[in-house]
């Protein structure tokens, strides 16, 4: 960071560097007067130019049509879903799903065919592997949307970035002794617990989604206690991109290979192994890890995006 004499952002930089202590002094003086606190003004973004279009009426009419169309689509969707729900078998009935062959097949054959003691994992990652692939992509798409809307990464305007940082520092208790002590104790335990749940996904309740959520919670706890400077050492935007890309790519390729060879009865070299061991159940363990990585990255990315707009 440069320090010129006539730097227009000097007050923001000062604030960022010793925000907490500056805030303390202000709190003593002017607790009741919030307006004189140096809250930076609302950033006058380029979005405001949208409303200065010449053809105002066209835009208005488009907006009306857009609202009508959205309403109609929503109504149609609700109708379809309600109709589908009405066609479902009765919940809790005595003969509901008794004649479903799939359920009995799963219960009888999952352990044998996939090597998973936890039948749920066997179903969602093996029989319905593409469904889980779609779910992982849904998470990834959600993060992409949030990135599009909120990210200030690559923003040329230095003031915008500094303001975001200042906003972030304003109310957030940084360098809180108590929280840091607690986080130092808990973060490793939380991360290990998350890894344990992921690694035992095919043996006991759990798996990629729940373990990944715990990993993300551990990351968020660490970030809260120690700030962005510490997390930037191991988790940046680049890391997020790399991990998400590799995870989703590996999942797609592995699952595609597995399904292709399985459907054509080609030997694929993936065996269930000794049921009950950690290193068993063929693809389930790596797939669980991959899903866990995606979920953890998603949790952390959503948190940082909504908090500051940057990793």
């Amino acid at each position: 960071m440069k320090t010129k004499k006539n730097d227009p952002f000097q007050h923001l930089k000062d604030w960022i560097e010793n925000g907490d202590s500056a805030l303390e002094v202000e709190m003593q003086d002017e607790l009741d007067d919030t307006e004189s606190q140096p809250l930076p003004k609302e950033p006058a973004g380029p979005q405001k130019k949208l409303f200065v279009l010449d053809k105002k009426n066209v835009l208005k009419r488009l907006n009306i049509w857009y609202a009508v169309a959205a309403f109609a689509v929503c109504l149609a969707l609700i109708g379809v879903l309600v109709y589908a729900a009405a066609q479902l078998p009765k919940f809790g009935g005595a003969d509901t799903l008794v004649d479903s062959e799939v359920t009995a097949f799963y219960v009888e054959n999952t352990m044998e065919e996939t090597g998973a003691v936890n039948i749920v994992t066997g179903i969602i990652l093996d029989y319905r592997g593409f469904d889980t692939l779609g779910e992982s992509h849904v998470l990834f798409i959600a993060v992409c949307t949030v990135l599009l809307l909120l990210s200030i990464h690559g923003e040329k305007d230095e003031e915008q970035k500094l303001k975001a940082d200042a906003y972030d520092r304003h109310f957030e208790p940084h360098h809180d002794e108590v929280l840091q002590c607690c986080a130092r104790l808990l973060t490793p335990l939380v991360l290990i617990f998350g890894l344990y749940i992921i690694a035992n996904g095919h043996l006991s309740p759990g798996g990629g989604f729940s373990g990944g959520a715990i990993l993300g919670a551990g990351l968020i706890l660490y970030q809260n206690a120690f700030g962005y400077k510490k997390t930037e050492r191991f988790f940046t935007f680049r890391t997020f991109k790399l991990v998400s890309l590799c995870a989703l790519l590996f999942y797609s390729l592995a699952k595609g290979y597995h399904f292709f060879t399985g459907a054509n009865h080609i030997p694929n070299g993936i065996s269930a192994g000794h049921v009950g061991n950690i290193l068993s159940a063929g693809l389930l363990l790596p797939l669980n890890f991959v899903v866990g990585c995606v979920v953890a990255c998603t949790m952390y990315a959503l948190y940082t995006m909504f908090r500051r707009g940057e990793f």
Binding site: L23, M27, F171, P173, D176, V178, L179
Partner: peptide
């Protein structure tokens, strides 16, 4: 933490 946030 909540108490501190309230105070600030």
């Amino acid at each position: 933490l909540i108490g501190r946030l309230v105070r600030e």
